[in-house]
Nucleic acid binder design. Structure first.
Lengths: 341, 341
DNA sequence: CTCCTTATTGGGAGCGCTCTCAGTATTAGG
DNA sequence: CCTAATACTGAGAGCGCTCCCAATAAGGAG
């Protein structure tokens, strides 16, 4: 409500400046005064006005999280909540606030301008992924600290990403090692770096194992359950003996199609996903997948952003997290240890 | 970046005040000057400083969305993304920004204070649901505009809620009308109003149809998949012929348990959920459930909050949205129309 | 053509806080 | 006990914007 620094100062019998010092670390204040002022602050539950502080100091303690329009359709995936949770947790610990922008096509332009020039944000996290996202371009041209979740194919920018390439390669190889020789893939959207990288990993693995690549064994599932289902239907006539779905959600859709086709997983056909979403462990059969800790991805990202804000001018910070193979029932071989029941 | 009102004024050859007027609706400005100033604003892409505006005007255009600690474990449910999407969409349309607070137990106290007294927020949405949430109490004692998603059991506050009571009653009655006479329920947490209301609706329906209530037919599923699974296991020995799971997520867990018990749904046992989550239509058999449009819940909530901010002092605004029965395969009778394939 | 209204515009005073700098109290050194 | 450091503290000047009020321009009536 209405209390101001000045009011606290008056109550404590000191000057505005002294209260401000106490509020901001208390350096250069006699211990006895610090205690006295802090006592008043605590007793009246004083909370300094963020807007005023932002105006005067130039930083607000607010971080923007932008989910661009292109991916907002996927927003109900468990991915985003986990990401937000990871970010939010670090934000709380660092006394920062998170402002969320779900960009919609109609408002995208306004969104960008607001982020860049309104002076509200100390830094921005963009859950990018869509190639050629104009937001990223604008941000890159501005001088506001920002970081991407997901690498950028061209720009030299800060990012944290899962190694989707090696992950795609690893899990495709795993299908091979489980005996699959006709491996299909259900890809994510090819205008997202993650979709692209996972697909390239798949291609790499085929090459490594001397398997031929065939367009017929590739279908786009758009990172959605329904897309995975449709893609699997499409792949079925090709009679693959193993399928790499580039996300667990799509794998769930694929599994549904497989079930309808009376095919047993993994006996008739092996299936693997990516992400280790919560559903992966629950579904029957449980899903072999690449684990990426999305909440850690989020927390790591904010940590780096805060570091960028505190220590500007470094080279781009680029962190790549290796995903981890989780072997479950949908694809396994005797020689590997299977997780869970 | 650095442009200020003053700079725009100088370029346009008018005063600071005039530019401010143009920015805020342009009332009382000659059309020709308005055009001239607007031209300059557009050409340099001027964006007024939010902190300064907030300080001077007293409102910031920022709405806080608080997800209290008690429910953050459920945050990865599709419920919250949908809610956020609904809120975000209205916020975009009204040129408001959304600040997200995932309260964690450790930080809850600080969170509340920050929300209340930092002066940053024009209003607050609390996705409450947990009974005796201290956040709500504090907010209620303050004079910041706020609204709950989910009714409050005691306080006379603004809220938007789904009619969980009538919904629970309706779907339990539907089980009855489908021939079930030994109806069990998997409840949500009983410290959440939604969990409580849906359970009470279930009890009401039993009474209406003259069915006896039995503690043995009630199990808590905590609104999670795993909880639903465990609860169903627990209920199995009681040999119910119909089960009302108080959320679709729990119904999915229950279905898993039923599958393991070799029971066919709906032939051996009928199952219904609540929410009409995306998974409800996808699962086999597709789930009969009560539809609530979570994103509409979110958008409605923000609309009302904005109205509260604009027109303060009214009586509590309390909106209750009726959920809608969606009949699918997990429980139906010939005389009802079934949705979907 | 002059005087009174009314439409526009400009200037000043903050909003509540931080930051710099000068002033005062304290302490140490001689 | 005095002088030079050093430790604290207070006052003033904004940060960029809105709001109020006085000043000026424009429009009408007489």
């Amino acid at each position: 409500m209405g209390l101001t620094l000045e009011a606290i100062a008056k109550i404590a019998g000191v000057s505005r400046s002294t209260v401000s010092r106490v509020l901001n670390g208390g350096k250069g204040v006699k211990e006895s005064t610090r205690l006295k002022v802090q006592g008043v602050i605590d007793s009246v539950n004083f909370q300094p006005n963020v807007a005023a502080r932002g105006l005067a100091a130039g930083n607000t303690g607010i971080i923007g999280l932008v989910i661009p329009a292109g991916v907002s359709a996927l927003f109900s995936d468990p991915y985003f909540p986990q990401l937000i949770q990871g970010i939010s947790s670090v934000a709380n610990a660092h006394d920062q606030s998170v402002m969320l922008w779900l960009a919609e096509p109609d408002y995208e332009e306004r969104t960008i301008r607001k982020i860049l020039y309104s002076g509200l944000l100390d830094g921005v996290i963009v859950s990018s992924m869509v190639i050629d996202d104009p937001t990223v371009q604008s941000l890159h041209e501005s001088d506001i600290p920002f970081i991407l979740i997901g690498r950028h194919p061209e720009l030299e920018v800060n990012f944290v990403d899962v190694n989707n390439l090696s992950g795609g390669r690893a899990i495709t190889s795993f299908l091979y090692r489980c005996g699959c020789r006709r491996i299909a893939t259900i890809t994510g959207p090819q205008n997202m770096v993650a979709g692209l990288d996972r697909f390239n990993g798949y291609c790499d693995a085929l090459t490594v194992h001397g398997l031929p690549f065939s367009e017929d064994l590739v279908a786009d599932g758009g990172f959605t359950e329904a897309g995975g289902y449709a893609a699997m239907k499409e792949l079925l006539p090709m009679e693959p003996d193993g399928v790499f779905a580039a996300s667990d959600i799509m794998a769930v859709g694929a599994l549904r199609a497989l079930g309808e086709a009376q095919l047993d997983v993994p006996a008739d056909i092996a299936l693997v996903g990516f992400d280790d979403a919560p559903v992966a462990a629950r579904i029957k059969p449980s899903l072999t997948t690449m684990r990426q800790s999305t909440s850690r991805l989020g927390s790591k990202t904010l940590e780096i952003l805060l570091d960028i804000i505190a220590n500007p001018g470094h080279l781009p910070r680029q962190v790549i997290i290796e995903p981890e193979l989780v072997i479950r029932k949908s694809c396994y071989a005797e020689e590997f240890r299977v997780e869970g029941g």
